[in-house]
Structure formats: structure tokens, C-alpha cells
């Protein structure tokens, strides 16, 4: 029961893609607010660099690599969907999901180790930002993986192939957020 409204396109841009762009715009200001707060605090507290020294840059770098590669398979999925090859698009999305899950698993081990070393969300405001920002991002990764599973399941049946592009857009956004988080939380020591 899709309304006629959903089938029109006065701008020439598909409505669903417009909606995803607006969603991303509203997310940018949320992460923007959080990161701007973090940067302001960080500039005011030189001592935080000692806390940041305990973060593991190599694990962060590995996760960056994983996310970037998963974005690549999302792009390949989009290409396959454009060609009308739902099977292949779904397969590519499964690779992307694998990347997302790997990212989360690595993150879980990383956090466990940090918490065991006594760096919890309340130990210091640096760690509060660390867990809040990365945690909010991880929630987005998790949500992306779940939605991607649904999209892949329909794409496999060669239905709703335009959704492959949409979830890809969202995934790139999640990726870009991490590109900001990684230097801010890990590299700057």
C-alpha cells in the first residue's frame, strides 16, 4: 500500500535517497556536537593526552582498515544492484556485514581489556568521551549491520534493489564518522 506520494519525484531525486541524506544531515549535527564538545575540552585539558596514551592505536588502525574495506564491498554491492544482479549485491552486503561484525568484536575485546585495566567511563572525562563517542558510533554500526541484513535478504530475491545504494550511503557516513573518531581518540596523544 505504497501511497502515490511515494512514487512522485518533483526534484528528480528518488524520495528514499533524499530521506537518507536528510537522516545523515541530522546525524552529522549530533556527532558534530559531541566531537566539538570533546575538542573544546581536550584543548582545555593538556593532561588528557596522558590518558589518551593508554588507547591502543594499532587496534584502532586495524578497525579503521576493516571499516574502509567494508565500505568498498558496499560500493561493489551498489554497482551489482545497478546492474540488476541482486544475488551479487547481497553477497557484497554480506561482506560488508562481516566487516561491521569484525569491527564490533574487536571493539568488544578492546573495551574489555581497557575496563580490566581500570579505565571505565567514569574514571576521567577523557574516558567518558571515549566510551560515549565510540559507543554511539558502535550503535550506528550495529544498526547498520541489522538493516543491511534485511536489505540483503530482499536484494537476494531481486526486490527493492535501490535499497542497496541507500544502506551503502548510510554505511559510508558511519565510516566517515570513524575517520574523525580514530585520530581524535587514538592518534592524538
Amino acid at each position: 500500500m505504497r501511497p502515490v506520494a511515494n512514487t512522485r519525484s518533483a526534484t528528480g531525486i528518488p524520495t528514499a535517497r533524499l530521506a537518507v541524506w536528510w537522516l545523515i544531515a541530522s546525524e552529522i549535527v549530533i556527532f558534530g556536537g559531541l566531537l566539538a564538545s570533546y575538542i573544546m575540552h581536550r584543548l582545555a585539558h593538556d593532561a588528557w593526552s596522558q590518558q589518551a596514551a593508554y588507547t591502543n592505536t594499532w587496534i584502532g588502525a586495524f578497525n579503521t582498515l576493516v571499516l574502509l574495506s567494508s565500505s568498498l564491498s558496499a560500493v561493489l554491492g551498489h554497482k551489482a544492484a545497478d546492474e540488476g544482479n541482486g544475488q551479487k549485491a547481497a553477497k557484497m552486503l554480506y561482506f560488508t556485514m562481516l566487516g561491521g561484525v569484525t569491527f564490533l568484536v574487536v571493539k568488544a575485546f578492546e573495551w574489555t581489556s581497557e575496563i580490566q585495566h581500570g579505565f571505565t567511563i567514569t574514571s576521567n572525562t577523557f574516558w567518558s568521551f571515549y566510551y560515549s563517542a565510540a559507543g554511539l558510533h558502535a550503535m550506528h554500526v550495529l544498526a547498520g549491520v541489522i538493516v543491511m541484513g534485511i536489505v540483503a535478504a530482499t536484494a537476494k530475491k531481486n526486490e527493492e534493489l535501490h535499497r542497496v545504494e541507500l544502506i551503502g550511503l548510510y554505511w559510508h557516513f558511519v565510516d566517515v564518522v570513524w575517520i574523525f573518531l580514530f585520530p581524535l581518540l587514538y592518534i592524538a596523544k
Binding site: W22, S26, S37
Partner: peptide, 10 residues
């Protein structure tokens, strides 16, 4: 949409 983001983070 453009103004509520930072407060949402807050």
C-alpha cells in the same frame, strides 16, 4: 533538524 543535534549529543 539542524539545531537539535548538539543538544541531542548533550
Amino acid at each position: 533538524m539542524l539545531s537539535v543535534g548538539p543538544l541531542f549529543a548533550g
